[in-house]
């Protein structure tokens, strides 16, 4: 059951990314490009996604997940070095290619060689990160 609903959520997520145009790297770069031909689409995507999600958080209060367990507790509201350094590195990569993790998987079937190269190097980065963190004392 958990896998079934995860599959449904993943499918819906991917469909949303495709319909919204977020698998088109030029729409993402266009949104970041405030000095060029600015494309506001991403703001509508974010706004549209935050509304049902905010309703879900509100509904979750005082309840439990349908398939058991507990809802994730809010993390310590601590803004550490890792959050700032990591988000800055991520943003740089996002701006360079116009892809983030979700759309990179959703566009894999039509993204050609470039899409596969992106995912391969992203996975390599993810695999190396635990080692990198201990090397840089970010752990």
């Amino acid at each position: 059951m958990r896998a079934l609903f995860a599959f449904i959520a993943g499918s819906l997520f991917g469909t949303g990314l495709l319909i919204s145009g977020m698998t088109n790297t030029q729409k993402v770069i266009g949104w970041l490009d405030v000095f060029g031909n600015w494309d506001p689409t991403l703001a509508f995507v974010m706004g549209g996604a935050i509304l049902p999600m905010a309703a879900a958080w509100a509904y979750s209060r005082g309840r439990s997940p349908k398939l058991g367990g507990t809802f994730p507790t809010p993390p310590e509201p601590k803004v550490g070095r890792n959050l700032v350094i990591g988000s800055t590195l991520f943003g740089a990569g996002w701006g360079l290619a116009g892809l983030c993790p979700g759309p990179s998987i959703a566009s894999l079937s039509f993204g050609g060689t470039g899409g596969m190269v992106f995912v391969a190097f992203m996975l390599a980065g993810m695999i190396l990160t635990p080692r990198l963190k201990s090397q840089l004392a970010l752990a």
């Binding site: 995860a6 959520a9 949303g16 049902p52 999600m53 979750s60």
Partner: peptide, 20 residues
Amino acid sequence: GLIGGVLIGCAGAIYLLVNG
């Protein structure tokens, strides 16, 4: 963008409310 965004939010809502 808005329609796709709502779908993304619904996906997140299902993953949260059903799978936790």
